[in-house]
Amino acid sequence: MTAPSTPSAAGWRDWLLTAEPRSRGQARLGRAYVTWRRFSENRLAVTGLLIILVLVLVAAFAAFLAPHSATVGDLAGARLKPPGTPGFLLGTDDLGRDILSRLIYGSRITLAVVALVAVIAAPVGLLIGTVAGFAGGYIDAALMRVTDIFLAFPKLILALAFVAALGPGIENAVIAIALTSWPPYARLARAETLGVRNSDYIAAVRLMGASPARIVVRHIMPMCLSSLIVRVTLDMAGIILTAAGLGFLGLGAQPPLPEWGAMIASGRRFILDQWWVATMPGIAILIVSLGFNLLGDGLRDALDPREAGR
């Protein structure tokens, strides 16, 4: 059967699910379709995906969505207003700033932290893990020793110590979290590499004269990607919590940045009478990290059916 000339929905499905794909593109699309079907059956996973999509949209259109400024408040007329006050849906803080607007702008910081940590830590872990696994011998032993040393560190404490030395600030928080996040990725990539390094297709590429660098980059790294993506997604909740924790201790984002953890810290003083100042940002953190956890769980189940439901 060739690709149908007048594609109906059923025709497309057959084309995607065929056992004998005519091209690489068709095979890849077919795989993606099967994965997506498995993923979309999982209601919790789709919920997680929706949460993350909403987060991205809110961060992108913060300027249009936020009713007020995130940093300048109405000190005279709107200090510590409870939720539901007209114009201030989630109330205001001690400087008369609208909490909803601060949460909306804060989503940009959260997203930026998560993305930056992932962009720094994942490639580092991937490179170290694949090189160690493929090279073997002394290189493997040395690289894994270093990985184990970092893995043996308590994450938050190490991040604290780094931020203490570098000075507080959102950039340093990102660096500190990235420095403590890469070892599990290296372990994972190494394990995947050991699984494929002796397979026939690697031997075939080697016979064709591919250099070790090319084998690692073009033929081993792609095999590690799916499990790495799952792991990174699952870790994102932890990254958000660590960043919020650093912010709460006053070591992450500095005022007047609307970082959610720092907002909780500033609301701590009024928790007895104005509970909403500290409560609202916490709910935001909970929802977003729950979203990442659900998404990561769903991705793992969809990409790795062996582990499904575990």
Binding site: A237, L241, A244, G245, F248, G261, I264, R268, I271, L272, W275, A278, T279, P281, G282, I285, L286, S289, L290, F292, N293, L294, D297
Partner: peptide
């Protein structure tokens, strides 16, 4: 379990103090 993985523990601590102590 998922909520336990996702909740900021310092925030939950503050809220539980508010509820159970105050």
């Amino acid at each position: 379990g998922l909520i336990g993985y996702s909740v900021p523990i310092f925030w939950l601590g503050l809220l539980s103090l508010l509820l159970f102590y105050a």
